[in-house]
Amino acid sequence: MKSKLSSLGGLVYSTEAGRMCPACRQPVAQCICKQAVVPVGDGTVRVSRETKGRGGKAVTLVKGLALDAAGLTALGKQLKAACGTGGTVKDGVIEIQGDHVDKVMTALQAASYKVKRAGG
């Protein structure tokens, strides 16, 4: 019983271009299907504090920004510098290490965003 290679999901790796995207069959560096469209929100940026799944350590989450990936990364870098701590951008959410809700809200308001505190 031979199965077709195409039914297995297609090309995953090429010695010429490296890792390949299974959806658009382009090299991962040139993938066109993963380019996120700018999310549309209600115009309000929500800032919250969360500890779930982090061993009790608090992180400040910034959600609802209508920016592309490069814009989120740049804003995340500015917020990390303003708080003097580390962080990351995951799935359109900026995560800042530590409880810095007030600092983040102040920095976003100074950048003329409409900000709201979310959660408790």
Rank of each mutant, 00 (worst) to 15 (best):
C83H: 01
T60R: 03
G9M: 05
T73P: 00
A58M: 00
V12F: 01
K80C: 05
L72M: 07
L79Y: 04
L75I: 06
A58E: 08
G64Y: 12
K52T: 13
C21I: 15
K34I: 05
P27T: 14
A23S: 15
K52H: 13
A107W: 12
T15C: 00
T73E: 11
R49M: 10
T73Y: 01
K63M: 15
G87D: 09
L65T: 10
K80N: 03
L79W: 01
G71F: 05
M1F: 10
L79M: 03
L72Y: 02
T15W: 02
E50C: 12
A118I: 02
S14H: 15
K34Q: 07
V38S: 03
A29N: 15
V59H: 11
V12N: 09
S6A: 11
G9I: 00
V89G: 04
C33M: 01
R46K: 13
R117W: 05
V37S: 07
K4C: 14
L72K: 02
R117G: 02
S3E: 11
G87L: 04
S7N: 07
S3P: 05
T88M: 12
A118M: 00
G119N: 00
G55T: 09
P39A: 04
T51P: 05
T60C: 00
G64R: 11
M1G: 11
K34F: 01
K103V: 14
Q97I: 14
E50G: 09
V115T: 01
R49K: 08
C21R: 14
A36G: 01
C83S: 03
L61W: 04
G64E: 11
T73L: 10
D99P: 01
V45P: 09
K57I: 08
L79T: 06
Q97L: 13
T85E: 03
L67D: 08
A74C: 00
I32P: 11
A74Q: 09
L67E: 08
S112M: 08
Q109A: 15
G41V: 10
V101R: 07
A69D: 13
T85A: 05
A111W: 04
K114V: 09
Y13C: 11
D68M: 11
K116R: 06
L72D: 00
A69S: 10
V45F: 05
Y113L: 02
A82N: 12
K103M: 07
R46M: 08
V38T: 08
L72I: 05
G53N: 07
T60N: 00
E16M: 02
Q109V: 15
T88S: 13
A70C: 03
T73F: 06
A81H: 12
D102E: 06
S48T: 15
S6L: 10
T15K: 10
I94W: 06
S6G: 11
V104C: 14
K103N: 03
T73W: 00
Q26Y: 01
L79H: 01
D68F: 09
G120A: 00
A58P: 05
T44V: 15
D68K: 12
T60V: 00
E50V: 14
T88R: 13
Q26R: 15
I94Y: 03
C83Y: 03
G84N: 13
T88I: 09
A70F: 03
K90L: 14
K34D: 03
A81T: 15
Q109F: 09
S48K: 14
G87V: 02
V45A: 11
L108Y: 14
Y113N: 04
V12G: 02
V47E: 12
S6F: 12
D68P: 12
C24M: 01
G92K: 09
S6C: 10
D42E: 14
